[in-house]
C-alpha cells in the first residue's frame, strides 16, 4: 500500500460515511417498551447524521437502567458509579477537549444521589450533552420512589403513596444563574426527540435535556394521561428555537411560540405541570465554558515543564555560601 498524500487523506476523511451499525453494540437488555430504547435510537441516528467518529466519542453514565446506555454504543463508554457520571465526564472533557462527550443519567442518578454534581455541572457549563432519562421511578432496584415521582406514587418504599411533591428538574436547572441550555423531550415522540437531541448536541456548553420516559415494568400507567391526550404535550416552537417537522405539528396541536432566550418565560413554562412542554426552553450560547476559562494555553512539553519547574525551584533555592558571597 502506497502512502496517501495529504489531499487524498483529507478526501478520504470527508468521504467517510458512518452507518447506524457503526454505533450499535449488542442487544439492549431494557424491557420491551422502555423509553431508553427510543433514546438510544435517536442518539445513534444523531451520531450517524453528524458523522461522529466512534473513537472520538465517549458516553459516560452513572448507575441505573438508563446508565447501561454506553454498553449499547460502539463508541468509547464509561459506565461509572451511582451519581458521579457528571464529574467523571467533566474530567474526560477537561483532559481531552477533542472528544465529544455525552452523559446518560437517570432521575435517581442525577436528581438524588448525584444532585450536588448536577447543580455544579450546570454551573461549570462544560461542553457536554446531558440526557436525563426521567422515568420517575427507580427501576433497576425494583420500584422505589424517586425525587421526580409524583406525590402519592405507590412504590415499595412508599406503599401508602409517596409523601413529597415531585422535584421539577427543569425549574431546578433553570434556577442556576449561568445555565446555558435546557430542553425537554418525551420518548413517545421520536421525531421531536431527535430534533431536540440534535439541537442539544449543537449547543456549545452544557446542554441539559430532560427526557420524560415510560417505565412499562413498574409504572405502566403513569404517563397514560399524557400519551392518550396529545393536547397535554405543549409543543414549543420559535425561529430561534425548534422548528418542528410537519408531522409533529399535525399531531401536537397545543403549540406555544417561545423564544428560548427568555429565561423568565422559560421558568414559567417549566413550572406548568398540567402539560409537558416539549422543545427548547432556554438557550444562551454566550455563557462561557469552564474549560475555556480555566484551561492553560501552554502545552505540557518537557521543555515547558523544565523551565517552569526551574523557575519555581529558583524561588526556593539556597545556593552554597561560596557562590552566594
Amino acid at each position: 500500500m502506497s502512502p496517501m498524500s495529504a489531499t487524498e487523506c483529507l478526501l478520504q476523511m470527508c468521504d467517510e460515511r458512518f452507518e447506524l451499525e457503526d454505533y450499535q453494540s449488542g442487544v439492549p437488555r431494557w424491557c420491551t417498551g422502555c423509553g431508553d430504547n427510543a433514546i438510544l435510537a435517536a442518539v445513534q441516528r444523531l451520531c450517524r447524521d453528524e458523522g461522529l467518529r466512534p473513537e472520538k466519542t465517549v458516553f459516560v453514565s452513572g448507575i441505573g437502567c438508563s446508565s447501561r446506555f454506553p454498553h449499547y454504543m460502539r463508541t468509547y463508554g464509561f459506565h461509572g458509579i451511582h451519581g458521579r457520571a457528571l464529574p467523571i465526564a467533566e474530567g474526560v472533557k477537561m483532559a481531552r477537549p477533542d472528544l465529544t462527550v455525552f452523559v446518560n443519567t437517570g432521575d435517581g442518578d442525577c436528581c438524588s444521589i448525584g444532585a450536588a454534581h448536577w447543580i455544579h455541572a450546570i454551573r461549570y457549563n462544560m461542553n457536554l450533552t446531558v440526557f436525563l432519562h426521567d422515568n420517575q421511578i427507580y427501576g433497576l432496584t425494583k420500584k422505589q420512589a424517586s425525587p421526580t415521582s409524583p406525590v402519592g406514587t405507590r412504590t415499595n418504599t412508599t406503599p401508602r403513596g409517596s409523601y413529597l411533591e415531585a422535584l421539577n428538574p427543569l425549574t431546578v436547572t433553570l434556577g442556576v444563574q449561568n445555565v446555558s441550555f435546557v430542553a425537554q423531550a418525551v420518548d413517545w415522540a421520536p421525531e421531536l426527540l431527535y430534533d431536540i437531541v440534535k439541537a442539544a448536541y449543537h449547543h456549545k456548553g452544557l446542554s441539559f435535556v430532560r427526557i420524560v420516559q415510560r417505565c412499562p415494568e413498574w409504572m405502566p400507567k403513569l404517563l397514560d394521561p399524557w400519551l392518550h391526550d396529545p393536547g397535554r404535550v405543549q409543543l414549543l416552537h420559535h425561529r430561534n428555537g425548534l422548528l418542528p417537522g410537519a408531522g409533529s405539528v399535525k399531531v401536537y396541536t397545543n403549540q406555544l411560540e417561545h423564544d428560548p432566550s427568555d429565561i423568565n418565560r422559560a421558568r414559567e413554562i417549566a413550572s406548568n405541570t398540567q402539560v409537558v412542554p416539549v422543545g427548547i426552553l432556554y438557550r444562551n450560547p454566550e455563557v462561557p465554558c469552564y474549560e475555556d476559562l480555566i484551561g492553560s494555553d501552554k502545552l505540557r512539553t518537557a521543555d515547558v515543564t523544565r523551565a517552569g519547574l526551574n523557575a519555581e525551584l529558583d524561588k526556593h533555592t539556597v545556593w552554597p555560601r561560596e557562590s552566594h558571597a
Binding site: P87, G91, M94
Partner: peptide
C-alpha cells in the same frame, strides 16, 4: 470541585481519557 467525591471522579475521568 464541588466536593471530595467529585474531585476524585473528575481525576478519574481525566485519567481514563
Amino acid at each position: 470541585a464541588e466536593d471530595e467525591i467529585a474531585a476524585c471522579a473528575f481525576a478519574i475521568g481525566a485519567s481514563y481519557a
